[in-house]
Nucleic acid binder design. Structure first.
Length: 494
RNA sequence: GGCCCCUUCGUCUAGCGGUUAGGACGCCGGCCUCUCACGCCGUUAACACGAGUUCGAUUCUCGUAGGGGUCACCA
């Protein structure tokens, strides 16, 4: 294979959504696998809808995901003259023509065709204009668009071998003379895209299947411009549970990459999940490091069928596709703890819970505490919510925890402060010693150890569930543990 | 409606003529246990339908149905 050059060309009309991110990811994987180049090109020709905010969002989203590019960002509007020149060239070579039909005329014909249940395609009225007629209309100052002249003499059509779909064909008859330049002189997407891909020497166009219908027309353009036609790979689309294409408009932030960033996802976990949405290996491996995924990725193992992004609106436990969550959890508890530390530190800073000591004198404590609590967390946000009691004395009490583990046993009001006394006098505050004390005390009281243990957990962390209590106590430290048992217990009975 | 693409458990998927149709997530159950997770073990659940080709079709072909995409002077 000669030099691999692929591109990701978002139009900056909204945030980066997961479908776009997946397209970017597949392009990135392909480029990295073949030591090629990934080009980022912002397709901002639609001035009305393009915004700087959107551009910033797309770029920061890609950066967060760790998808780096080699060239760009280029901006399509920077090359308007090239697009126009290409149109001019096609016009001069007789491969395109000026069309003076008005929108109204076209609209009427379209409606008439629709009413008669006929398929509408441009009838080629202006294609049949003589040079003199064209000149005359132009002299009158009539506005015109430029249409590409689709070959009408040759039978057959355009066909290409899609890297995902296989051979895809379309007859010339099904392709109308499409507009390549607006009446205001601005070139249209179909042309711009091809001209840019030619200039950027794109070897593989990897994009969504929603572009499948554009491909035949674009191939015609490549040929007319005497440029080599790239390989195409059309990825399946991502649909929602109702099988509608996911979009920013109808699905909101759940499909925005930024949402996952805010929700405490690990960027690579999201990439890993996205990679699996429409692609797989023959051995069904599902967890991949970067290097593994780059090595394993291939276009021909991209699934042909659309996949469904499985999320249930309004279910807090599954606020997004459960598989995405489970992959995130997997990384959360298996990734090297050293890599997790800075990510959690950022979240703690945002929440105002960070202390510089965590990176200095208490570094070892900080690391081991994260390690202790991470196995039951779903996202890194959980460190500042469910994990709050480890970093602050100001934490909430879960109602169920208080009810079930405190109020149910009236005597805990005395037992827990007593436990505090015992713990305070412990020579070494290790979890083994703590266990000995707690079990011993429970025996003295003649109660099941669980009552004392769960009560202590509820008071010291505010939660119903958590890691083993003796380790929790050790992590909290003698001072905080004793203090909480002593001073926070009574208040819970009010 | 025209054109194009697609169709295996609820979801993501493996399978490329002969399999008890496999895995993952979710669900449910169990083990572990101070709780909840983790981990481990197990259960539930699928080849859209109909013809053909074949000794034999989930797999190949053709229909039907269903789904999706696209039909702009948006990208």
């Amino acid at each position: 294979m000669s030099e691999v050059r692929v591109r990701f060309p978002p139009s900056p009309t909204g945030y980066l959504h997961i479908g776009g991110a997946r397209t970017a990811l597949y392009n990135w994987l392909f480029a990295r696998k073949y030591n090629g180049k990934l080009i980022l090109r912002i397709e901002d020709t639609d001035a009305d809808r393009s915004t700087q905010e959107s551009i910033d969002g797309i770029i920061s989203g890609l950066q967060w995901l760790g998808l780096d590019w080699d060239e760009g960002p280029y901006f399509q509007t920077q090359f308007t003259h090239e697009h126009s020149a290409a149109a001019e060239r096609l016009l001069n070579e007789g491969k395109a023509y000026k069309c003076f039909c008005t929108r109204e005329e076209l609209e009427d014909k379209r409606k008439a065709a629709l009413a008669a249940k006929q398929d509408y395609k441009y009838d080629g009225l202006c294609r049949r204009l003589t040079a003199a007629e064209t000149a005359e209309k132009e002299a009158k100052g009539l506005p015109f668009v430029i249409r590409f002249k689709v070959d009408r003499h040759e039978i057959g059509g355009v066909s290409f071998k899609d890297q995902v779909l296989g051979v895809v064909s379309r007859t010339y008859n099904d392709i109308e003379d499409f507009v390549i330049v607006r009446s205001n002189g601005k070139p249209l997407y179909l042309l711009c895209n091809v001209v840019d891909d030619i200039r950027d020497r794109i070897s593989h166009v990897i994009r969504g299947q929603d572009h499948l219908g554009n491909t035949a027309r674009q191939i015609l353009l490549y040929r007319a411009l005497a440029a080599p036609v790239p390989e195409f790979a059309h990825m399946p689309l991502t649909l929602d549970l109702q099988k509608a294409k996911i979009s920013k408009r109808s699905h909101g932030e759940i499909v925005a990459v930024q949402f996952y960033q805010k929700a405490g996802f690990l960027p690579w976990a999201l990439c890993n999940f996205l990679a699996l949405l429409g692609w797989s290996t023959s051995d069904n491996q599902e967890i991949f490091s970067r290097q593994e995924l780059i090595a394993a990725f291939s276009l021909d193992r991209i699934n042909k069928a659309n996949s469904i992004f499985n999320y249930r609106k309004g279910d807090p436990k599954f606020f997004t596709d459960p598989k995405a969550i489970s992959i995130n959890e997997h990384y959360l508890r298996t990734m090297p703890i050293a890599e997790l530390v800075p990510l959690v530190a950022d979240k703690l800073r945002e929440a105002g819970l960070w202390q510089d000591e965590y990176a200095a004198g208490q570094k070892e404590w900080f690391i081991s505490t994260l390690d202790l609590i991470r196995s039951r967390f779903h996202t890194i946000n959980d460190f500042v919510t469910l994990g709050r009691a480890y970093f602050s004395d100001d934490y909430e009490f879960e109602e169920r925890a208080v009810k079930k583990n405190i109020l149910k046993h009236e005597k805990l009001r005395e037992w827990l402060p007593e436990l505090a006394d015992r713990l305070e006098s412990l020579p070494d505050f290790t979890h083994q010693n703590i266990e000995e004390i707690m079990r011993g005390l429970a025996a003295e009281f003649g109660i099941k150890p669980g009552i004392l243990i769960n009560g202590a957990r509820a008071v010291s962390t505010g939660l119903l569930a958590g890691p083993g209590m003796f380790e929790v106590a050790a992590a909290l430290g003698r001072e905080r543990m004793v203090g909480r048992l002593r001073h926070k217990t009574a208040g819970l009975y009010k």
